[in-house]
Design a protein around this nucleic acid. Structure first.
Lengths: 338, 338
DNA sequence: ATTAAAGATGTAAGCGCTTGCAATTTTTTT
DNA sequence: AAAAAAATTGCAAGCGCTTACATCTTTAAT
């Protein structure tokens, strides 16, 4: 005869220890409210039964889950990995758990995942960027879910955020590129639709371009998904133009890696024949050859600060604040003076 | 006056639609048991109230969560990203959700996360590798939690698994290396303790080495964490030996990327001066220069198959099976005939 | 038209936990 | 030693949902 594996509950522990369930619950959650001897008695019962609290029941009764949800556009490339890891570490340290899902850069899917995470009782949410349907923000506000937007910063906003100014950062890099003598710039951008970071970065290049007295019509731009293959394909297309670019500025490092590989395949020497720049400074950037000139983003710091801000929001109900982090330009071999 | 944001419940919907909560529940879960007109009525109420079911309550009442937990050693490098993304996609397709956490390669932490996920009501678990405390397996068995082990395969085991033979794969690569004339092999392995994949891979090299009549004492091995920096440091150490290696075989691509970078920094030409091999064939492998010879692992397929197996286990209670996937050797420029 | 079968809906008992309040015990104060 | 205050503990009412079972309608069969 098969006895189904019965999982011990609070009741079982209470019986074993000869106390009420309320007391057991207190032993688990507010030790200071319980006498040392009962605590010992109860903990022993917990041990011997191998009791683990049922999370769903606890969340439901306590109306809080000690869980934070994060929705990132993708797990597939390293853009968010490092920041998210730091985010999680900080959360664990503070007694929270992390639920991750990925939206595949699809706003619809993101909205759905937000509902999903809220339905799961997430105490707070980490979202990437700020551009999303107003209805989503309304939903979050109505539900009273503390939310932090990361990887972007919007100081004047009604939302809490931690990130950096994508536009100013990219402009800084573009200024440098132009100062180094480049006049034929081509841009490989991520898909702009629904991705404010990509849009800001492109705008940064355009800012610089125009500030230097050039015309937007003379700035070739290709929009393509954030994948190395796409970067490679875009490069192939760009170098067939009448006026060859002397530098390719990419919306992120992943695209740039694709460009560098493809350039070599096609017989270009980077940076002698053509320079390349990226954005993010993911690990890859140091290891492609030539090493990639890029914008260094303090991912780990961003993750940590985001975690702290979010928990502040949840626990202390502090005002929403925006943290603006500093970026820096990482000059490496892929960009050369003309 | 501030009205706290009150979240609509099943009751609210039932009232609004003029039916019982049971009926609303049926509309949401088993439409076919409800008449078309009530369905319409209820759905309208759901819409207008903006109702989202409370996940915790549902999981508790139904005793199943439609949630799968996965614990991976790290999110930080790309080793697991691709497989996990595919895993998630397949799960979503089948109506399941994924909860991810990372154990930082610490068995203790992993055990804790397992309990955590089980407490959260995970219907099943995806774990990496097979080497873990027997107590963990007992716990899982007692709780009756279907579990699939991935990134490793253990055909003769009592556990369901989907993966590949790390040992045989690495041996295949080592055979190739030796066949190409290399006699001075040095190995940079991941930390063996608590990481069966790393151990198997090392064993594969040793198998080949001995099969070719060499002595284990002549095979330098450095154990180090799976990070590019560690790979670089290990390389620096290895090339200071009396007999210089002609090839460095690395436990994974991340280590190998570190080696290639460092080698260039130190003035070595890869592969003319020294060859390098990796394992995994992550994206990075194609984009380092020279491109990395490595073992190609079908990560996406592994993720998909793992998802399917796990769901089979959960829904149909089928027997545990092991899926052994085929790997292949990806010959690229970093390995050269001697 | 009568009865049986099938279909739709409602009733209510939990699922395992937390927590306000009341009851009890212990400690402190007078 | 009695009274008051403080510290422990227990009681029991939910938290929002699912589902076995009972009840009521409708449809099919005789």
């Amino acid at each position: 005869m098969h006895v189904s594996p019965s999982i011990p509950t609070l009741d079982d522990v209470a019986n074993a220890a000869g106390v009420s369930t309320a007391t057991v619950s207190r032993c688990l959650n507010e030790k200071q409210k319980v006498s040392p001897k009962t605590l010992a008695k109860v903990m022993e019962a917990v041990e011997s039964l191998g009791y683990t609290p049922n999370f769903n029941a606890r969340a439901m009764a306590a109306k809080q889950s000690h869980t934070i949800g994060a929705i990132i556009p993708t797990m597939e490339n390293a853009i968010f990995a490092r920041g998210l890891q730091a985010f999680q570490e900080k959360l664990l340290e503070k007694g929270y758990n992390l639920l991750v899902s990925s939206s595949a850069y699809q706003p619809k899917l993101e909205a759905q995942q937000i509902r999903e995470l809220v339905a799961r009782g997430a105490d707070g949410l980490l979202l990437i960027g700020y551009e999303r349907d107003e209805a989503v923000y309304e939903y979050l506000a109505r539900r009273g879910i503390p939310t932090v937007l990361a990887w972007a910063s919007i100081p004047d906003s009604e939302h809490a955020s931690v990130g950096f100014d994508n536009r100013a950062a990219m402009r800084l890099l573009a200024d440098k590129v132009i100062d180094m003598g480049h006049r034929q710039i081509a841009v490989i951008s991520g898909i702009l639709d629904g991705n404010d970071r990509a849009a800001e970065r492109l705008a940064g290049i355009q800012d610089s371009w125009q500030a230097h007295g050039f015309h937007l019509n003379d700035l070739p731009i290709i929009q393509t998904p954030y994948e190395t293959e796409s970067g490679a394909a875009a490069f192939e297309q760009l170098v067939q133009a009448d006026v060859k670019p002397t530098v390719i500025m990419c919306g992120n490092d992943v695209l740039a890696a694709g460009v560098i590989s493809k350039a070599r395949d096609l017989g270009f020497n980077v940076p002698d024949d053509i320079s390349v720049t990226g954005f993010d400074d993911i690990e890859l950037a140091k290891h492609v050859f030539p090493a990639l000139t890029t914008v260094h983003v303090p991912h780990r710091q961003m993750g940590r600060v985001a975690a702290e801000s979010l928990i502040d929001l949840i626990e202390n109900r502090v005002e929403k604040v925006s943290h603006q982090l500093d970026i820096s330009i990482e000059m490496r071999a892929s960009l050369q003076r003309l």
